[in-house]
Design a protein around this nucleic acid. Sequence first.
DNA 1: TTCTATCTACGAATGATTTCGTAGTAAACA
DNA 2: TGTTTACTACGAAATCATTCGTAGATAGAA
Lengths: 123, 123
Amino acid sequence: MKPTDAELEILHVLWASGPSTVRQVHEQLSQHREIGYTTALKLMQIMYEKGLLSRDDSSKTHTYTAAVSEEDTQRGLVSRFVETAFRGSASRLVMQVLGQHKASREELDEIKRLLNQLDHDND
Amino acid sequence: MKPTDAELEILHVLWASGPSTVRQVHEQLSQHREIGYTTALKLMQIMYEKGLLSRDDSSKTHTYTAAVSEEDTQRGLVSRFVETAFRGSASRLVMQVLGQHKASREELDEIKRLLNQLDHDND
DNA sequence: TTCTATCTACGAATGATTTCGTAGTAAACA
DNA sequence: TGTTTACTACGAAATCATTCGTAGATAGAA
């Protein structure tokens, strides 16, 4: 339910690439950092046991798929993060993020659209 | 530099209440969850060694103070979180947060003000 | 002064995460 | 067929975070 950092790395690969073998995932991860093949394997096995991944083991080389959606996972992570880091104040988190990361014009516009929509929901 | 969850709880108490003794911090924490006195003590000692807290031990009962600011700490936490959970996309984090937490009218207005200011900075 | 309460220091157990080596098995190849 | 290669399973070490018990010291009360 609450993936660890290493598990998130693997989920990101699977979310981006779709169903993959351990070797494929390992190759992706290797481009970012040092990690042994059996480390990736073990992580994915644990994630399978936890229900974070599903797998097709009909052939010798198993194929893994993310069993949790990116949306749902990020929702959970955000909830937890707002609680622990911002004591539940989501708006302070938003302002902190907007203040420290330079968003593009398009991103700012998209956020504004969302804000206006929330405004109308509030009315 | 990167406080853990338990350490963050203690920092929040000290940020809110200012310099405090272990007993005072422990009393605050106890209202939220079960935690032994020596657990709080040990945590604060470790945080002192790490440089997260400073302390006055001129009397038998030490007084601890947060040695890192809330702003700086949250900035660091956000950076890390955007990386691990959102692969660096701050705007997607913002939209996720705004979509899932109902902010008050005042908060939304404040966020809009910030957005407009960012707009002008961009021009 | 003696006893009690409070505080710090220290050590250690527990559990979770991350890591990788080794062994065994199946497939592909020569 | 026999050998090499690739893959999974398993176990276990290393690290870190969290937890608390116990011991020793200090201060205040009786």
